[in-house]
Design a protein around this nucleic acid. Structure first.
Lengths: 243, 243
DNA sequence: CGGGTTCTTGACACGGCTCAAGCGTAGTGG
DNA sequence: CCACTACGCTTGAGCCGTGTCAAGAACCCG
């Protein structure tokens, strides 16, 4: 096993003891299977805020599982502009965009101090061949990624600004809920710039919509933090059933 | 082997002789491997225009490879509205949206008379375990699906109407080119309704943009058919380098 | 404390949506 | 063969939502 020294205690955690194993590849695997998976995990390492996990064009060698923190994934256009394709949280798998082509088609950056587990794809491949249960979990995560992208397409294709922001808040709440955090009050590490980019609108528009939500008493906004006062109402807006 | 009778001659074609094997799962597989894959193919059957391949909520059992024709995939919202998530052509794999959840999250309909090959997922799974080369091809196709979705997100998130339509034309041209058809003149089986839905705009807007292209001498439009007169110019527009 | 980023707010313009009417083509039945 | 209908496409007018531009406030970090 290749473990790094000189890393915080958290980095020594094995899959079996990991806080997010239920959200990650181990998911429903038995103890023996989790151990096998644990053995192929390469480095478990921290990333400081702003550091890149991988960049566009770099060759694909590993998938990465987020242990702690938040990441932003984005594509870089030829003209230099960015399109944020998603935000990723603990338990999620990063790098799936490259398993087809062998080259990363997007770039991933840490939005805060994070830690990740590296899964050398060749080793994972070999394990997938032997372990049907792991294969199933892997397919599940791939499927979730596709479904997630589809819902982004839906958001960008059909919704107005207000509904988009409401949808984002609802999803963020459910992400935090799944990870055992408060639904009422959570961190939004991304800037309005990133948020607006992801939502297909401008910074100003995000700000204005958020201000409206504030005025209507649906949320309270603190720097990098959001307090949800009326989740039900926001869900209604997200569903398109209320203006 | 389970083959259907009572179907056109085309439906009897095996993977080894299939016109689109280079675009489909067999891709770079050796003859022996292709044969193994061919053996698990369930029914190879035709679908008439307007028929559904699968519907939202139906349980996932098989993937489908498109042999001939064009399909439209779309999500149905709770309020009954649709979001077209993509158009699919020969050689592409349908049903990947469900491998995670076991339930189809979108609906697929034939835009013309089509034929498809059914791949029972349980059988494919078993084969994936044994054949590293097939696994690689499968991952490639999954990766392509993710990359495709990402590019749709980019289109919806960053482009104006004119650029979106140009992008669609360029992609359609490359799809037809890969399949050995003319790049200059090809069928667009989808209605403006579907097109606009996919592109995140309205019917009227598609029509107007198309009219502009016509006036500028970039395309000629016949019913359900598009003749590209100046692909280079359209590519420039799609790249965002010209108004 | 200063300098850079990030956020807010306003005024204005414009792209695309909405609504509405008219046109062309294909299919159907007398 | 010609109404008649249905459907998809086109075109116009007007309006609304967002983008754009600009200035200032708030915040963060060294």
């Amino acid at each position: 096993m290749h473990q790094e020294e000189a890393t915080p205690a958290a980095c020594a955690v094995h899959c079996a003891d990991c806080a997010v194993r239920r959200l990650c590849l181990p998911m429903e695997l038995g103890t023996a299977d989790v151990d096998k998976l644990d053995h192929i995990v390469g480095r478990r390492f921290p990333l400081a805020q702003g550091e890149l996990l991988y960049r566009t064009g770099s060759p694909f060698a590993s998938l990465y599982a987020v242990r702690e923190g938040q990441f932003k994934a984005y594509r870089v256009n030829r003209d230099g502009s960015e399109q944020v394709t998603g935000f990723h949280f603990s338990g999620q798998l990063l790098g799936l965009d490259a398993i087809g082509s062998g080259v990363h088609s997007c770039e991933v950056v840490a939005l805060q101090d994070c830690s990740v587990c590296e899964l050398p794809f060749a080793d994972l491949e070999a394990l997938l061949a032997k372990m049907p249960a792991l294969r199933q979990q892997f397919h599940r995560m791939v499927g979730e990624e596709i479904a997630r992208m589809q819902s982004v397409v839906l958001l960008l294709g059909k919704m107005k600004a207000r509904q988009r922001l409401a949808t984002l808040i609802v999803r963020a709440a459910s992400v935090y809920e799944a990870r055992g955090y408060s639904i009422e009050k959570f961190q939004l590490r991304m800037t309005h710039e990133d948020l607006s980019n992801y939502l297909g609108m401008t910074r100003e528009c995000v700000s204005r919509q958020l201000t409206k939500f504030k005025q209507e008493g649906l949320v309270k906004v603190a720097p990098r933090e959001l307090e949800v006062l009326d989740l039900a109402a926001i869900k209604t807006i997200a569903a398109g059933k209320a203006p």
